[in-house]
Design a protein around this nucleic acid. Sequence first.
DNA 1: TTTTTTAAGTGTTTTTATAACAATTAAATT
DNA 2: AATTTAATTGTTATAAAAACACTTAAAAAA
Lengths: 236, 236
Amino acid sequence: MQKYSKQTRILLAVDCIVFGFDGEALKILLIKRGFQPEKGNWSLMGGFVQPEESLDQASNRILKELTGLEGVYLEQLHTFGDPQRDPIERTVSVAYFALIDINKYEKQISDDYHAEWFTLKRTPKVIFDQQEMVEQAKKRIRYKAAMHPILFELLPSKFTIPQLQNLYENVFNTAIDKRNFSKRVLATGLLIKLNEKDKAGSKRGAYYYQLNMHNYYSKFQAFMNFIPNPDSISAS
Amino acid sequence: MQKYSKQTRILLAVDCIVFGFDGEALKILLIKRGFQPEKGNWSLMGGFVQPEESLDQASNRILKELTGLEGVYLEQLHTFGDPQRDPIERTVSVAYFALIDINKYEKQISDDYHAEWFTLKRTPKVIFDQQEMVEQAKKRIRYKAAMHPILFELLPSKFTIPQLQNLYENVFNTAIDKRNFSKRVLATGLLIKLNEKDKAGSKRGAYYYQLNMHNYYSKFQAFMNFIPNPDSISAS
DNA sequence: TTTTTTAAGTGTTTTTATAACAATTAAATT
DNA sequence: AATTTAATTGTTATAAAAACACTTAAAAAA
């Protein structure tokens, strides 16, 4: 026996929802689609899975092609398989989400693709069922970040506690008491205080911190809870 | 433009990890595979995605073919796409997990497939990368059950609190204080006490409860925590 | 140089949730 | 009537979370 004859083969694609944080708001990266159908319309970055690559490899390749970044946080989200989701031909798409340091994003690469960052609250219409993918990705990121320290992936390697708090407040759309927040964050043992200040945000300046990578990896799977009332968070 | 020419189409399958609870232990349902390769070996229940069905439809169809059950809890787990995972031909598999009331499982249907329940600790070797699927499903069910009341899906519509506690202790492999457990469970408002006792488990008998379906659906996404030290639970 | 302005940094108290703990009761069996 | 078994229930202690306000560093303005 060489093949599973009589079975239909299906086109398989990967779509990536790329999140970034610019200090103000959580954003996603969209491109203008380069081929028909929907050519020129805003789209997630995606592509077809090649015969010899795994899904993780495909998503990493596509992400690198579009942002120039390698080794970023990339996680499989969900697979979308409605027979009608692509009008040209049935295409099943495995969605991934990525969290990147927006500062490392290489603009020149994206210029070829006309990529742009959009605030989550003001994303343009995207093609096919990608709006649903984005919604699910937003849910997932909130869900996961409520218990695991994934949001550090959105920050540069040196960051201040006010920056970190701002990020959490943004993602969870809630105000957090800064005394309680810093207490909690520091209690995790995930942060190393540096002898250097960020003077951009205030006159006094805020101390930079960096991740204790050893603790970060070892405690990554442990539960944590920076968020006062995670009751509002919905599951993936 | 009619098709995405030049792209390779790939075989797409669905595999279901079916969980059941018999009052003693958490179990999964396996079948003896009916075709080559690996014919006669233990396998998850799976099948190929048909041209006109969605992934959810495919998994529901396969589940019904094998257990006779419809409308059960079924959730997409992860998509496995290693190019070598099936030796005959590249097949990408979308894994789902199901939680069923083991009492509703129709034996006669399964007899055709030689299906059998296996305790999680004593599962036989399964084909391809299915062991990894099972491991991920176990993680996911623990992860999700730590915060959402999915385990009720494993119980009959009438159940006692000791039964429920037994289930939680099994899934999380931990002993729970029964006073604290019943307090927490009853505090959720998810249970309705019935005027009827289960006399099978003890002389005194334990009151039956049933789910308050309204509260169950409305609170499903809310966080909960029956488990004393969920620190040991790892993420999906 | 003094004062003002701005955001960073820090401690204590109150409240709530969790964890630890044991005696009583219903009902069958002896 | 006594015994056995598991179900049921409440209180106390401990830990975690939430609420709350003042001091400090440093630049900018007076």
